[in-house]
Nucleic acid binder design. Structure first.
Length: 460
RNA sequence: GUGGUUGUAGUUCAGUUGGUUAGAACGCCUGAUUGUGGUUCAGGAGGUCGUGGGUUCGAGUCCCAUCUUCCACCCCA
């Protein structure tokens, strides 16, 4: 009997060191920008009670929730009749907990549980994995990370403007310069629904026009027809499809003319204007922002501004960041009147874009600066001492832990991309002149430890 | 959840209508070089052909199941 081959669950991944170094580069960049704008870290448990999770993501979402089986004899509360009633009736008896599906609902739960002690506006960021029992595809996994930042308890459009600022800062730092931040406002879309005589039907309207760039105008109109929209209503939508490539403010103006007198739309357009004004006032000139009246985003809880970021000139066309304002985050948990604005970065997709455009900087990849070669057991105590002194000045240093063949040690340095090597055998240690080799140039010099340390000081 | 697709050495892939001992490249190990990596040369190791059944004298090749990969829906990051 052979040992079973090890495997990992479908849609889950190992991140090997090569990948982790790159992921960390992205994650650290995002985190530092969050912190720079005053957001504080928050983590919530991987498991939530199912009562918190179910019913928050629609019927489809409930299907995609991972449920955790009760520990012990999970069948002990189940009677024969319940067993026969099928999975749906059985579920609450055998499972009380589930894995988190996103970071927004657990955050809402947190706010409701703690709002008495919190000071508002409350700004938190959260970078944690979430789980969905979806069928995996390229760029879609069953376990993946979300990076959310939200402000709750503030209605000012400064929050929206700062979202745009943070998106710009993150992508600039990552070296992604060709991207577009599309902005729209749910109030405008609500107004549009009203305008075409389908007041209250903005839900299906959003779902349909959100697919515009993917399936085209005809299919969208077809879907609307199937959703029960009137033919005349769909015809009235043509102003939206024909909006064309106008300048941002020009488009705002054009829409103001079309939608004049529809209160919600007027308000939404005013907000768009104001966000542009704030961004202007912040002094951000190249903001990559583009008002797009057809941007909708499928998610139902948005009520104000909505954002979506896409990289340009990349094979990866799906969105790499997005967000928006929601008026009633905590309503489902019985706490009314807490509004918020949030957005998130799609780490996996940002990773794919950067890989696609070869944007990962080489320096971000090797972590060790220096390797000290191990010649002989009897010299180990000395080279270890040297390593300690070098590390004390902040240089990341390795001692090769065994006195194996030099070739193998040099090869180790080479494979790991370690740029400098110290060779210190009996002679070097006696004279204090260490052999210091630059692996990239292939040159080596005799240098004292102090000389080496000053060399690194100049390098960094 | 629906329909399709993929799986052969560490990796990327060949493998003829089913027919001897399943190949290549790269990587890995050893040596040329016992104190010098990245280039070169010589040699070597490594495979229950995803897994489990079945058909057959004979299966990497055909059939069924299952897992996995990827793709299109649905939905989404």
């Amino acid at each position: 009997m052979g040992v079973a081959k090890p495997s990992i669950p479908k849609g889950a991944r190992d991140f090997d060191p090569d990948k982790m170094v790159k992921r960390k580069f992205i994650l650290n960049t995002i985190e530092s920008v969050f912190i720079k704008y005053g957001f504080q870290p928050l983590e919530t448990p991987a498991m939530e009670n199912l009562s918190v999770l179910t019913g928050k993501y629609g019927d489809e979402g409930d299907q995609l929730l991972y449920k955790v089986l009760n520990s012990g004899d999970f069948l002990k509360k189940v009677s024969d009749t319940e067993w026969k009633e099928g999975a749906k009736a059985l579920l609450p008896k055998i499972s009380e907990k589930g894995l988190r599906y996103d970071l927004t609902v657990p955050f809402a739960r947190y706010v409701v549980m703690n709002h008495g002690q919190m000071t508002f506006p409350f700004k938190r960021y959260q970078i944690q994995p979430v789980w969905r029992a979806d069928r995996p595809q390229k760029g879609r996994y069953r376990e993946f990370y979300q990076c959310d930042a939200d402000v709750v308890g503030a209605n000012s459009l400064i929050c929206e403007a700062e979202n745009v600022l943070m998106m710009n800062e993150v992508f600039h730092q990552l070296g992604i310069h060709d991207f577009v931040i599309k902005i729209n406002n749910r109030k405008i879309l609500t107004g549009v629904a009203k305008y075409i005589g389908e007041a209250g039907n903005e839900g299906p309207l959003c779902v349909a026009i959100d697919k515009l760039d993917k399936i085209g105008r005809e299919k969208v109109e077809e879907e609307l027809l199937n959703s029960g929209f009137d033919k005349s209503a769909i015809e009235k939508l043509s102003f939206l499809f024909d909006a064309g490539n106008k300048e941002n403010l020009e488009l705002v103006e054009a829409m103001e003319n079309v939608l004049e007198g529809v209160d919600e739309a007027e308000e939404g357009l005013k907000e768009i204007r104001e966000i542009f004004e704030y961004i202007d006032a912040y002094g951000l000139t190249n903001h990559h922002l583009q008002f797009d009246i057809t941007l909708a985003r499928g998610l139902s809880y948005y009520t104000g501004a909505i954002f979506e970021v896409r990289a340009l000139n990349s094979q990866i066309t799906s969105s790499i960041s997005g967000g928006g304002r929601y008026d009633n985050l905590t309503g489902v948990f019985g706490l009314e009147g807490v509004s918020g604005v949030g957005f998130s970065f799609g780490v996996d997709r940002i990773y794919d874009v950067m890989e696609d455009l070869s944007l990962f900087p080489d320096e971000s990849l090797n972590s060790t600066d220096l390797l000290i070669v191990n010649f002989d057991k009897t010299l180990e105590k000395k080279i270890v001492g040297i390593a300690g002194q070098i590390r004390a000045s902040g240089i990341s240093t390795e001692v090769y832990p065994e006195p194996v063949k030099l070739k193998k040690q040099m090869n180790y340095a080479n494979k790991k991309g370690i740029p400098y090597v110290i060779l210190a055998g009996t002679e070097e240690l006696e004279s204090g002149k260490l052999t210091f080799k630059d692996m990239r140039l292939g040159e080596q010099k005799s240098m004292t430890l102090t000389e080496i340390l000053t060399f690194f000081k100049k390098e960094v």
